[in-house]
């Protein structure tokens, strides 16, 4: 769009003067935005905070950010700046609920979060590895494309919502609607491993990927109590260690004991879980697992009058 558009009033044949933009590689930024005077980035003042002693520290190739006084925009701006510089590891100290950490980042950077991150941790992200030392809140890995999130505690609702790739490991339990509308696509195979229990509507609308719920609670192996598991499920697999009753399942989910092949298939993910949080993969895998899968990939077939 090098050519400036003529005013219509001066030139009725205006449209012919404006050839379609040249072909660009997918994902490349369109030139149209660059000439925009008003479309410039809304820069926020981070300098006075970043310049404070101890807030933004580079050492041994790592970046350490003390987020105690930072708004999420300042924090995420600093994180993105560090990623753009090529930093491979970022440690965030004193995180108190800042949202969107790691959101939209497309490099395999390692981000260690000390504290409790806010909602939408790693939303839309494509590659980073985020390690949370404590609990996480809602929307962990919302619509994420690739990367790994490891939470050394519990997580809130809609963990892995609309997730299309990458892995999420939660040491303890998660809230409602985990893995809702998780989907897989070719080489993208999202995996969610929950060490403890899940609340209702696990895997609702699930369209692909693997969910593994281990039910390892503090008081030993308690019963899995979630209801409406796999409601509207039309793809993917859910593995639950232990038993669930028929009435706990959504009507679109079918259930049977996991086979030896199933156990072999989930072994690498359970081993990865054990690597992060400790435990014995063989012990976990030697217990009884059930496998849930969709009765149909076309749940609404026949619903309409054509």
């Amino acid at each position: 769009m090098e050519q400036k558009k003529k005013e219509w009033s001066q030139k009725p044949g205006w449209v012919k003067e404006n050839p379609p933009p040249a072909e660009k590689k997918s994902g490349e930024k369109s030139g149209a935005n660059e000439e925009e005077e008003v479309g410039k980035e809304m820069k926020i003042e981070i300098d006075h905070h970043a310049a404070l002693p101890g807030v933004f520290v580079r050492k041994n190739g790592k970046v350490q950010i003390d987020a105690g006084q930072l708004h999420y925009r300042e924090l995420n701006n600093m994180v993105k700046g560090a990623v753009a510089e090529g930093t491979e590891e970022i440690e965030l100290d004193n995180i108190y609920g800042q949202r969107y950490i790691g959101s939209g980042i497309r490099k395999p950077v390692k981000i260690v979060v000390h504290g409790v991150p806010g909602n939408d941790l790693g939303a839309f992200m494509d590659g980073p590895k985020i390690i949370v030392e404590r609990n996480a809140q809602d929307g962990v890995g919302n619509t994420m494309n690739n990367g790994t999130i490891v939470v050394h505690g519990r997580a809130g609702d809609i963990v892995g919502m609309g997730m299309r790739g990458g892995k999420i490991f939660i040491k303890e339990s998660v809230g409602y609607r985990a893995a809702i509308h998780m989907k897989e696509y070719r080489k993208h195979m999202p995996v969610l491993v929950v060490g403890g229990e899940t609340q209702d509507f696990l895997g609702e609308y699930m369209a692909g990927g693997i969910v593994i719920a281990l039910g390892l609670t503090a008081n030993g192996d308690s019963r899995f109590t979630a209801r409406h598991i796999g409601t509207g499920m039309h793809g993917g697999l859910i593995f639950i260690r232990g038993e669930v009753e028929e009435h706990q399942l959504g009507k679109e989910a079918a259930c049977e004991p996991a086979s030896r092949d199933d156990i072999a298939a989930i072994r690498p993910y359970v081993e990865e879980y054990v690597d992060y949080f400790g435990g014995n993969a063989d012990d976990i895998l030697s217990s009884r697992f059930i496998r849930l899968w969709p009765r149909s990939s076309r749940p609404f077939e026949g619903l309409y009058a054509y």
């Binding site: 379609p20 994902g27 930024k29 369109s30 935005n33 992200m125 494309n145 609309g162 509308h181």
Partner: peptide
């Protein structure tokens, strides 16, 4: 159609179909 990205409003709906980083950037 990515080449027309400068004239594209990309929708994010409840199904989040095709929503990924390239899409948002385009």
């Amino acid at each position: 159609l990515y080449r027309y990205g400068g004239h594209t409003i990309c929708q994010v709906a409840s199904g989040r179909f095709g929503v990924h980083a390239d899409y948002l950037e385009a």
